[in-house]
Amino acid sequence: MTPDILILAQEAADSSKLAATIWSGLSLGAIYALLAMGFVIIFKATHVLNFAHGALAALGAFFVASFATIIDVPGRWMPNAPAWLTWGLAVVLALIAAALVGMLLERLFLRPMVGEELFAVAIVTLGIDIVVRNITNDWIGTDIRPLGDPWGTNFFDLGFVRIAHTEIAQFVVSIVLVVGVALFFRSRTGIAMRATAFDQEAARAQGINVGRIFAISWAIGAVLAAVGGIFASTFPRRTGVDQATAFFAFKAFPAIILGGLDSIVGAVIGGFVIGLAEVAAGTYLEQFEFLGTGFGGVVPYIVMLIVLLVRPYGLFGTEEIRRV
């Protein structure tokens, strides 16, 4: 993960440093925000701290790679269709597959744990992470699997900053998804989900199908993870999905903690803060010899530690009320 950040930083040094830093920081932050948002939705609705989020992101990106390039579905049946259409359909298929995997995992491993201690459930997801990550990595193999996206390596050169087409797509998608999630919480299902997040038993007593809400929230979480995974493995960050993709998503954890585990607004803001901090550290602190290589990669964790020292529940997290 770190070398790409360094390449980014190098590029930034060539053109106007500050503008480029802010731009690539924001674009990295948007990915963290997507990952963090899916994570928070799962945590809020089902009270599960999902350590498998990174694995789900890698799996989603790999689904896109396999539908778009490896098995070439639906592209093999539509030879004359434009590239953006076949790729778009492949992405839709991949997201459906990711959502199904999310729902399956919830049904198999997390439904039996309802009502157990939060720790125990979190450790179950740690187990899921190991299983999903290793199977995904086995499918990916040792190569880098390109996603075959239609934007390729094109970019607009504004002189002081280079804006890749993927980054524009990423911002559009992120904004659509953030607004979509906000609107979703106003819909009937969304209100049911908020009720479930508040009190599972009371929600049940009001006739809400809590199991269905769990399944939906895992599906949404897995789709958001997959979208984050897709943009994490395209230009200008990487050339495809590989075995390191799952670890990339671990850096979304500082973003979540920064914003507070149960705050969606916090997740989005935390994502951007962490993204900016990481790229800025990679650009401006690189000249300091004593910091060594890869300092940008640990900046998110250091920021997280400092914020937690001041605010133990993150910036927007609900403080746990403790009583005997």
């Binding site: 701290l49 939060l118 720790f119 979190a122 671990f250 954890f253 500082p254 979540i256 903690i257 585990l261 910091l291 060594g292 290589t293 890869g294 300092f295 990669g297 640990v298 964790y301 250091i302 997280m304 530690l305 937690l308 133990p312 529940y313 993150g314 746990e320």
Partner: peptide, 22 residues
Amino acid sequence: RGLYLAIVTLGLVFIGEYLFRN
């Protein structure tokens, strides 16, 4: 406390790896 702690200690591993590498 609680789940926040699990993630903080997760960060410790990554920071530690960076320190050992450098």
